[in-house]
Nucleic acid binder design. Structure first.
Length: 276
DNA sequence: AATTAAAGCAACCGCCATGAA
DNA sequence: TTTCATGGCGGTTGCTTTAAT
């Protein structure tokens, strides 16, 4: 039946992405749109699994991503959504433009969970912990609802962390959060922008922006065939995506150069519209 | 200043649903 | 109908950075 594996494990690189790899991935997606992850590594000249490329793009390189810690309102929204949806991070992320499931998941595990515990709220059930203990003790002798959290649960309001607790209280955390929130880490795109040569290369100033898309294969749009219609659908997505970049405030992320990209894109989009 | 511990986060792993063959 | 590649998702790992001693 014949499908090729998504990537042959031999020669596939793992681990942290280099700037060079990022550059290739960005360049390729900017010219072709984020479509078929299976074919992407080969076409983009990357020795990576398609899955790895997708993750890198969706979690880190996507231009509409917000960087930095979640704001108070975002955090509250995450808590609310988590109470309703549980650990469905992708669903939660879909309600927060510019945030990824991975990012929210990490933030939940590193910040929100602790915050809730300190407030005496069980991050799993979103119920007050004291009540939780009473009910769970009544219902089952071996409390297993939260492995490893027993000591914390027994002293929900106490700073039990031996190393940092005396300094680490909610207000301090908030201060820390807000501080780092204002001092957002430099966006990767921004670093590309700072490097004029790199930026120029990325934008492909001296070559057509639109690559030959005939090799492009989009599993969703074309049901994994090679016909051109699929490519066109991808371009529609691409256009939408670029518009979204604007809507989400690309400039806020130091992505001014995408405006340049967009300036170049109408040609491609026009072609697309004419064909479609 | 050096060492250790903790926190943060990017990336990987493995499972699942879907749909093509 | 069955098989299996693919993309998506949630859980986990491990590296890097920061804070504490």
């Amino acid at each position: 039946m014949g499908r090729q594996p998504c990537c042959d494990k031999l020669g596939v690189k793992k681990g942290p992405w280099t700037a060079e790899e990022d550059k290739k991935l960005i360049k390729f997606i900017l010219t072709n749109g984020p479509c078929c992850w299976r074919a992407l590594p080969k076409l983009a000249g990357l020795r990576r699994c398609g899955k790895s490329c997708r993750l890198r793009w969706t979690n880190y390189l996507r231009p509409d991503l917000k960087r930095g810690l979640l704001t108070e309102s975002e955090e509250q929204l995450v808590i609310d959504l988590h109470a309703r949806l549980g650990n469905r991070w992708s669903k939660i992320a879909s309600k927060l433009p510019g945030r990824t499931d991975n990012e929210i998941k990490n933030h939940w595990n590193t910040h929100i969970k602790k915050k809730l515990l300190k407030m005496g709220i069980d991050p799993v059930t979103h119920e007050p912990i004291l009540k939780e203990i009473q009910t769970s003790e009544a219902s089952s002798p071996h409390n297993e609802h939260s492995p490893g959290s027993e000591t914390k649960l027994s002293q929900p309001f106490e700073s039990t962390n031996k190393s940092g607790s005396s300094k680490e209280n909610p207000s301090v955390s908030q201060t820390k959060n807000s501080l780092s929130g204002n001092d957002e880490p430099k966006n990767l795109f921004q670093s590309f922008c700072d490097d004029e040569k790199l930026l120029s290369y990325l934008l492909g100033d001296d070559e057509p922006l639109l690559l030959d898309a005939s090799n492009w294969e989009s599993p969703h749009d074309n049901k994994r065939s090679n016909n051109c219609a699929s490519v066109l659908a991808s371009w529609d997505d691409c256009a939408t995506w670029l518009m979204d970049c604007q809507d989400f405030g690309v400039n806020d992320f130091g992505l001014d150069f995408l405006n340049k990209v967009e300036m170049s894109f109408p040609n491609s989009l026009e072609m697309n519209n004419k064909r479609g």
